[in-house]
Design a protein around this nucleic acid. Structure first.
Lengths: 215, 215
DNA sequence: GTCTATAAACAGATAGAC
DNA sequence: GTCTATCTGTTTATAGAC
């Protein structure tokens, strides 16, 4: 990474990064060979060593590209100007809706999700970039909204934990997808299933907020 | 698997299975070599092919051992005889407490957890056994308790989803441990942290149950 | 059942022509 | 910057002695 801004790579370099995000996400890092990567990118095997110094270098470049795209996607979502508790609650609901759809692969960025989950499961070097570029800012934003919705402090320990339980609900429907689908009798997770998941989590959110206010 | 009951393997065979659960869980399947496995089990490399037909066979045997142990652990926990809503709620709380402690590695079966999570992340062949031997019966039991606590039907779609959101909260504190610890400023997840996580999830459970009753 | 030795395929990295 | 060919090490599996 030369500059921390957005120098989107081109040509072979870019193709290899995309192949990496796709294949590392699908099969994991170790299970993916450099030959597979070169083939997927329509590039030469030696190009990986040339552009990234090796397979590990490509992995880091993939994580950086992930951070770049996720940062762009988050920047695109305007911050709700409504500072009232109800406005904050509505924005929390909207983010839940968007995240369930994103995790379930409904939106375009579907290849980024498996990559991130693999990096998380394998505790790879990309996790730092994923954390700083996506997980931490998103969590911070949710804490801010939660605090505004409940009238508490955003950096309180209990608020942070509450937000993690919210995120956990979202994430598990993706990570444990094979278990969930089997138990629910779902052939796949389509729009109807996404709707049901979203409804349930928003219902939980409302219950949690109500309990918080009742204190 | 010769019989579906509990023929716990002995000697080299058993040692290799334990090594598999440990190393597959720590490093993942592909990243673990048969040499490492044999070394960890103080066995010969050829023993893996002899006893299990190959590395893949060992993986399946590990999953079967996982199912055997988890089944035994679940059978050990007596079913609460209290059929009242409050009794069911108390048992839900107790299970949450036990599962957070288990996932965080406080109890003895800590090696089984990483194995299961790896198998889930890699979508390996062990997932079938994990599902039937652990995930499905546990989810069914929680649905039953939830139904008793709220006065609804255990096999309702909404009940199943509610239970999954509960499980998701637990699971994420393990799967996303590196992210959680970083954001919370935790050096590691000890008894104090387990307590905070448990308190938060039980608080959410109570809020969800209260909202359900208020309908 | 357990071992040594080895086979056969595969990995990632690189030298050097273009 | 891209390619072919190859090097070096490691992988899993197996043959055959004990």
């Amino acid at each position: 990474m030369e500059t921390p801004s957005l120098p989107a790579p081109k040509g072979t370099r870019q193709a290899l990064i995309l192949a990496g995000i796709r294949l590392f996400g699908r099969q994991g890092f170790t299970a993916t060979s450099v030959r597979q990567l070169a083939n997927e990118a329509d590039a030469n095997i030696a190009a990986i060593a040339y552009h990234f110094g090796g397979k590990d270098g490509l992995r880091v470049a993939c994580a950086e590209e992930f951070g770049r795209r996720m940062g762009a996607a988050m920047g695109a979502r305007p911050v709700g100007p409504d500072a009232s508790p109800d406005g904050a609650r509505d924005e929390l609901r909207a983010i839940i809706r968007a995240m369930v759809a994103l995790l379930s692969g409904a939106e375009g960025a579907s290849e980024l999700v498996p990559f991130m989950l693999r990096e998380l499961a394998e505790d790879g070097p990309g996790i730092d970039i994923v954390y700083r570029g996506f997980a931490e800012p998103m969590h911070r934003k949710l804490c801010d909204l939660w605090a505004r919705a409940t009238g508490t402090e955003a950096e309180d320990e209990t608020v942070k934990l509450a937000v993690f339980t919210l995120i956990g609900q979202l994430m598990y429907f993706r990570i444990g997808q094979s278990i969930v689908s089997r138990r629910m009798g779902w052939a796949d997770v389509g729009p109807a299933e996404i709707q049901k998941i979203t409804d349930r989590i928003i219902c939980n959110l409302d219950a949690m907020l109500a309990a918080e206010k009742g204190k």
